[in-house]
Amino acid sequence: MAQATTRQVARPRRNSRQSRGDIIFETIVVILLALLALIIIYPLYFVVIASFSEAKAVVAGDVIFLPKGLTLDNYMECFKNGDLMLGYKNAFILLFVGTAVYLFLTILCAFPLSRRDLWGRDGIMIFCTIPMFFGGGLIPTYLTVTKTLNLHNWAAVILVGGVSTYNMIIMRTFFQTSIPFELQEAAEIDGSTPFGTLLQIILPLSIPVICVIGLYYGVGIWNSYFSALIYVSDKNLWPLQLFLRQILVNADLSAVDGGDVADMARRAMRAEIIKYAICVLASIPMLVIYPFIQRYFVKGVMIGSVKG
């Protein structure tokens, strides 16, 4: 017991009743967490090392801890096949434009909903929650966008992706809880228009939440490929994911057309390995910025769970 007391003095954060049982428990916890971390990280690590390895070694199951027969061939193949740079450029433009549009709409919508003087607030709120549960079904949306609006470009992709109500609610909660309403009232008594209030009072005080929501949207846009696939017909406008997809398809095709059996088998094998490189290429931008943005994800959740 005496030991426990000294421990408590030494580490004030620990529970005062730290006993041997607790230590064993904590050890088990750490082992468990580490094991799980391994289950999550190892497949990802494997993709990376496999993408730098020779196809033969991967297929033989020799690549386990380090790349075998270090090579950049798999990446060369990718860059040879598609206009990857164009893809990256398009994907980034789409990312920035899309995020900006969604943020703009989200802020515009969250602002009035955060104010208790908005008439019909509950009704609008309920209306806005409908899209959280139901997508409208692909066919009518497709017809609306391509036939009624005649859109076959990024505008279609951005429109179909849409504002997320969940993000809007987080934003609204932040406006409500972190910015005193009196501040807005004071500004408006001094002659500020609502738009002026939003621009000069709300926005400067909301940088953190705007970052969080922007990130949520950014990740979503980056990872979406399906709407680009069905709406963007002009290849010059394709985002990265579509080019990568095309490489996948081509690799599979070249694996089956012609040549002798050994040659075909070799190409099939290559096609399999190229997929690793593609996975890496598609994920790099997100993984590179992830360490810088991860704390905002938790922040977003915590803002969302504050009373509003």
Binding site: C109, G136, T144, V163, M168
Partner: peptide, 17 residues
Amino acid sequence: FVLPTVLFFSFFVIVPI
């Protein structure tokens, strides 16, 4: 201010449903 989003939701979610 709410109008753009409401229109957006109407057009791409409600109408398709």
